[in-house]
């Protein structure tokens, strides 16, 4: 059963990562959905550890790229390198970069220049890398887990909205609570480090993805997702008044796709073969918060994207229940 397989992966990750169930589920959802995830949180919350543990549990290749202002696109994608053969001949051969992996951690992606960011995002979207006259396909499954540090914004290049839209989910990584901190401290002081067991392999991940694509979506659930996205667009006729007041640009149709696709995986997590309105509702924050651009009034009044989405969801709930 798919849900059992996914639960076993979560259990294995839970051996290393304390708490952050939503973050783990979100990353797994993005992986199975075929998208990419943007994590936003302060350093030291286990983002790299999460990626490494996920690779071990699924037996997937992992790579990590630390983005810096002097990072060039070739440092990510790879470059043509001169190789010499045994007979003395020399030839240019493509040396793949760290992006050629199943799981890529793009750490502090907003510190790289827009040119490098664009190269990464293009690879994320096309799932191919072109150097010279050759086009190289990326491995499948392919997940880029980019991180952003919300504190240090000096000398950074914030991702444009068009490139943010290419991330399937944007997950906020909160601080662990007291109980989780105690567990982290205990595990740090323990002599025996936990070992992660491989539960599924690359083929099974693709099989789960295929099953997720077959999960049923009823018309009213689809309409709920569409209503939710339309309500965030201030120029739409169905826009919510709070969106008209605080939102400059609403969610794009990619928002609907993300909601339904991730809803399918979430339904699989819970042993269902249908997407429910609750799935869409619970994924609204992570799937839409980076697709909504707030205006000056919202920033001046301290409103966040989650606040806007919460108000819209409440109004939709009243509408559907009434």
């Amino acid at each position: 059963m798919v849900s059992e397989q996914l639960q076993s992966v979560r259990d294995e990750i839970g051996k290393v990562i304390v708490g952050h169930e939503d973050v783990v589920e979100g990353v797994l959802t993005a992986l199975i959905s075929g998208g990419h995830v943007l994590l936003e949180g302060v350093p030291g919350l286990g983002k790299t550890t999460l990626l490494r543990t996920l690779g071990e549990a699924m037996h997937l290749n992992c790579s990590r790229i630390q983005f810096t202002p002097d990072l060039m696109p070739a440092d990510i994608l790879g470059s043509m390198v001169m190789h010499g053969g045994a007979a003395g001949e020399r030839a240019l051969r493509f040396e793949p970069g760290p992006i050629f992996a199943n799981l890529v951690l793009a750490d502090e992606i907003n510190r790289a220049t827009p040119r490098t960011q664009s190269a990464l995002l293009e690879a994320m979207q096309e799932r191919t890398v072109t150097t010279g006259n050759e086009t190289h396909g990326l491995e499948n499954p392919f997940l880029v887990m980019a991180t952003q540090n919300p504190l240090e914004m000096e000398g950074t290049y914030p991702l444009p909205e068009a490139q943010l839209d290419r991330f399937l989910l944007k997950i906020l990584v909160p601080y662990p609570n007291r109980a989780e901190m105690q567990t982290i401290a205990d595990r740090t002081m323990a002599t025996l480090q936990p070992s992660v067991r491989q539960t599924i392999d690359q083929g099974q991940v693709l099989e789960i993805r295929r099953q997720a694509n077959a999960v049923l979506v009823a018309p009213h659930v689809r309409d709920f997702a569409i209503d939710l996205v339309l309500a965030t667009q201030p120029e739409s006729a169905q826009a919510h008044e709070v969106a008209r007041k605080y939102v400059r640009y609403g969610a794009s149709p990619r928002g609907v796709q993300a909601l339904l696709q991730c809803g399918r995986v979430r339904a699989l997590f819970r042993g269902r073969l249908n997407v429910s309105e609750e799935d869409v509702r619970s994924l609204a924050g992570s799937a839409l918060r980076h697709r909504i651009i707030l205006n000056f009034d919202a920033h001046a009044e301290g409103k966040t994207e989650d606040d806007i989405l919460q108000v819209i969801l409440e109004s939709l709930d009243r509408k559907s229940s009434g």
Binding site: L216, A218, V221, S276
Partner: peptide
């Protein structure tokens, strides 16, 4: 019931043409 009944009712599942996923979902419903 997380929209299982409505989904099963909408997609049917008791016909021969129904796919395997639809039938499985109906069993869950």
């Amino acid at each position: 019931s997380s929209d299982q009944v409505s989904t099963a009712y909408h997609f049917g599942g008791d016909s021969q043409e129904a796919s395997e996923v639809v039938r499985a979902q109906r069993e869950l419903a």
